[in-house]
Design a protein around this nucleic acid. Sequence first.
DNA 1: CGCCAGAACATTTTT
DNA 2: TGTTCTGGCG
Length: 748
Amino acid sequence: MTALLTDLNPEQLEAVTWPHQSALILAGAGSGKTRVLTTRIAYLLQSGLTQPQNLLAVTFTNKAAREMVARISTMLPINIRGMWIGTFHGLCHRMLRAHYEDAGLPQAFQILDMADQLAVIKRILKERSLDEKVLAPRQLQWFINNAKEEGLRASQVDTRGSFNRTLAECYQVYEAVSMRGGTVDFAELLLRCYELLSRNEILRDHYRGRFEHILVDEFQDTNRLQYQWIKLLAGSGSQQHAAIFAVGDDDQSIYAFRGAHVGNMRDLEKDFSVPKIIRLEQNYRSQGNILDAANALIENNKGRLGKNLWTAAGKGESVRIYYAATDVDETSFIVDEIKALHAEGLSLSEIALLYRSNAQSRVLEHGLFNASISYRVYGGMRFFDRQEVKHALAYLRLVASPDDDNALLRVINFPPRGIGARTLEQLQDQAEILGTSLWQAALKVCEGRKAVTTRGDQPGRGIAGFVNLVLSMQQACEGQPLPEIIRRVVDQSGLVAHYQAEREGNNERLENLKELVNAATSFVHEAEDDSLTAFLAHASLEGGEHQAEGYQDAVQLMTVHAAKGLEFHSVFISGLEEGLFPHENSRNEPNGLEEERRLMYVAMTRARQRLYLSYAESRMLHGQVRVNVPSRFVDEIPEELLKRLRSSGFSGAGYRQGLSGTGQNTVSTAYSRQGRGKHTPVSAAVRVAPQGLNTAGLHIGQQVSHTKFGTGTIVNYEGNGSDMRVQVNFHQTGTKWLSLTYAKLVPL
DNA sequence: CGCCAGAACATTTTT
DNA sequence: TGTTCTGGCG
């Protein structure tokens, strides 16, 4: 016990040993938030105050949940099985699976991710022949998810006005379609679970009796429904059974745009009569100047719960700021600094390049690539989102739950088997008439057809071919272990054959299909429930993070949002310009500027030792050069904390002057940069500059020679790793795309 | 049914 | 500018 509590500062100790009563912990960046959370759990268990099965800990990401499990396991020798640790969606999903009948769901209900949901919505809009200009699919998706997060069903939303009525009607159709297909979207997981608990007294009492402690991570990011769910589980007022231990930081609330409601912090305080907020203000990450700068910045926000980070470490280095003439200049400054840091022995993975929006990564990538610096870009496409994987998953869904229209539509003609728009329309009409799923309609069509004639039906093609395929898959999978099921379905689906038959560029796809089998194999080892349905749920809920890429020493490029929760020795925040950061769109949002400021606060507090801020006077954006004014956030940092670096050609005028203008006037287009050509779908989240033997020292502008084509200049590149291709302008034969794996290019 | 050209669009994002 | 989506044509 004592070992557990040593090295905690007084506030951390107070939080960890807090009595059985709800608490709100205001945990600043780098203040040991996760440590407090996990130590609290270990403390409760070790001191016998509670049992594992009486604990529920909820996070937002699977990564955070895993980290929590891992840390508790190292602290305690006990088996933490029985404890409910997971994401909101994961825990709700668990409850719904356990009580699917009470929740009114089929046993094999499937989870729709955002893309699946959007596809359903597009279909609904098309069927109702609603013009996309009148109602954009995304808008309807947003509306439905929002309604659900407010706890509203289609019958409960506002129907005043024709537009609202249209929205409500579409929502109603969407509900019906979901019901029939047995599908549940992300928001539905939460709402369904909430409704289940609020309606079913027996279940509610069961869970209330069970959970004595509910711990919530990143509480500032909870939306209204999530908070209601927590409240329901804990029971409030005289009904309160569980103590809520909420940890969060209002200054790091950066997800309002997706429904996060910081107000939940104050609500919790009130609803659960939290006697006092515990503030964790001692920072163990950054040096003094960095914290002072961040504190000064965030001070400009109103209505904060209030907090001031401090450190026992020294002042450290000044915050460096660089004013560049152009984005290219900004990039070359950053590249030079990275080279210098690397030369001093700092590993590249300790350097982060942060930006407000993804579009900014391009210039940076270009610069890094040309300097042969390895880098990794976060936020690419997730494994389970890839086209070929989604196709395979759709077949698997049909095996598990053939009434899922979305899955059916995705693969009914992929690989192509002669089912065109016409046939599909007939099938949809048929389903409409019968009031059934497309699958049922397809079965009917086949039966009828068989009775009349099979003439003209080539085996394996048409509706009959598809129906037979799915039926035989279902048969082949009966009683098989999961990896075998996947292997058979992938094989029988014809996906592999299809991709093999296509020329070029499908190696990665084929690899991913193999990888899917591997994913299933490791899933079987890890999960308690190794059914197909469980695997499909895993694919939807824990999609991306399976791809733990091997460690590579590379500079880390990501948006500020993606950087939350991470830390680095050195951090570059680029593009500090009005209109970019703060982003111009934030002007139209309520409290938009304050959210942008919090974003900046998050960005700054990622740095341990060294923080660079940079600004470019002119920048290429959307194909036009724009001239910008420095971000107001730079001016909010006290001068004495800054060390100004200057580019030689910069006029110097502009900063610390009137910031009233929007700062976006278009000037010349006399500007050139290497384009990147058509660009393969950048599916990989990782793009690492060539370093190996074959590719060492290659960069744009490099002269190379090729045995067949002679000499030329590298003008472009695309892809990554073994798939990387370069475009070479050969003096004799013109430009050619060459794969680095096959072509023997010799640098000159 | 597939391909290509032209248009439209362009914060942030996890589950 | 780059990327994605759509519609028309072969």
